[in-house]
């Protein structure tokens, strides 16, 4: 089983781009990733693309081929929809495809366009990731679903709105260092606590912003990277996906998210001896859907582990153990 290297990455600035089409957003990210990778156009064998609410935002289904064209590629293109984990799942499938030997070069990524809709329409669009019969018809919105979990969490483990406010303060502070972040503005705990209530106990700064954006990565096999002398020092050393019941009411625990902590699923985890390993736990790195940039309520979560190493490093012997 071959290892998977990240040959190139591309990202739009996340934010409000209501005038930009989804295909233009993805094109920006995909072309940046392709340029970063320097891989010949003819070598791309697949596009795995994640998108959640394209039918609602742009009345556009069948987005795979639309986005392959936007990326300037002529290859099979498949869209993955898995709520906020959509692009994370696309990434995971790209890793699995290369590991299996079925492809050497895959473009993976995602796009979400939301700000061309109003807040009420976005609220409705995001809510379709909840159970339509048993949750949406009972008024569950996405902030509402998290609010149900937050209150259950406070009851089970303690904590209150002020604790959540510190998370928003920290997130805004981190964004100051990130050119691609939606907001470059520090806030205080009082700002967060005094902001309008969205779904009690969650208020404005506890809820994710409505965001437009796209991202893409070029993934290649170890062998391809070496044959073409690519500068691709980062390997994907593991990928996992966890599941849970779709509706909160069908889950045994309202205050826990076991899907987010399930271990990586074989065969996409390969032990690698690498100088540095860190976890990359948020599928939202490749999917700007607001719902998931906080701890994951989703019934499906994805994680990826990556490690850095010299570009020409040979695959360690332990990597073949699975």
């Amino acid at each position: 089983m071959t290892d998977v290297r990240i040959a190139g990455v591309g990202l739009t600035k996340f934010g409000s781009h209501p005038e930009r089409t989804g295909r233009d957003l993805f094109a920006e990210a995909a072309l940046a990733a392709r340029e970063d990778a320097g891989v010949s156009r003819d070598d791309y064998e697949e596009l795995f693309y994640g998108n959640f609410m394209g039918e609602l935002a742009e009345k556009q289904g069948h987005q795979g081929p639309v986005m392959a064209e936007a990326a300037g590629l002529d290859c099979p293109a498949t869209r993955y929809e898995q709520a906020c984990a959509s692009a994370g799942v696309a990434f995971r499938q790209a890793v699995a495809t290369i590991r299996s030997g079925a492809a050497d070069v895959v473009l993976a990524g995602g796009m979400e366009r939301m700000n061309n809709l109003g807040t009420a329409e976005v609220t409705q669009s995001l809510a379709i990731a909840a159970d339509e019969l048993f949750e949406v018809r009972a008024g569950v919105t996405f902030p509402g679903a998290y609010a149900l979990m937050a209150r259950a969490y406070f009851d089970a483990f303690g904590g209150d709105s002020e604790d959540l406010a510190h998370i928003a303060v920290k997130n805004h502070a981190n964004a100051m260092q990130n050119d691609y972040a939606q907001f470059h503005r520090e806030i205080t705990v009082d700002d967060a606590l005094e902001s309008p209530v969205v779904a009690d106990p969650l208020s404005l700064y506890d809820a994710c912003p409505i965001t437009d954006g796209a991202s893409a990565v070029v993934l290649v096999s170890d062998d391809y990277a070496e044959r073409h002398g690519l500068d691709a020092p980062v390997s994907v050393t593991g990928s996992g996906q966890g599941g849970d019941k779709a509706a909160l009411q069908d889950r045994p625990h309202l205050a826990r998210t076991p899907a987010a902590t399930k271990p990586p699923t074989p065969p996409t985890q390969t032990p690698v001896s690498a100088p540095t390993t860190w976890t990359w736990p948020r599928s939202t790195t490749a999917s700007p859907s607001p719902r998931c940039s906080r701890s994951n309520r989703s019934a499906s979560t994805t994680t990826a582990k990556v490690s850095a190493r010299p570009p020409a490093a040979r695959r360690p012997a332990t990597a073949t153990s699975r």
């Binding site: 807040t119 009420a120 329409e121 609220t123 409705q124 809510a127 949406v136 009972a138 008024g139 569950v140 919105t141 902030p143 509402g144 609010a147 149900l148 979990m149 209150r151 259950a152 009851d155 309008p196 209530v197 969205v198 779904a199 009690d200 106990p201 969650l202 909160l248 009411q249 069908d250 309202l254």
Partner: peptide, 30 residues
């Protein structure tokens, strides 16, 4: 078991807001 008062509704609940949605246990189901 838990509840939320929703202040920002979807259009289908525009005339209900703010409203309280709750999850309640009824024996073996919620």
């Amino acid at each position: 078991l838990t509840f939320t008062e929703v202040h920002v509704p979807a259009p289908d609940f525009a005339d209900e807001a703010p409203y309280v949605t709750a999850i309640a246990s009824f024996g073996p189901v919620k």
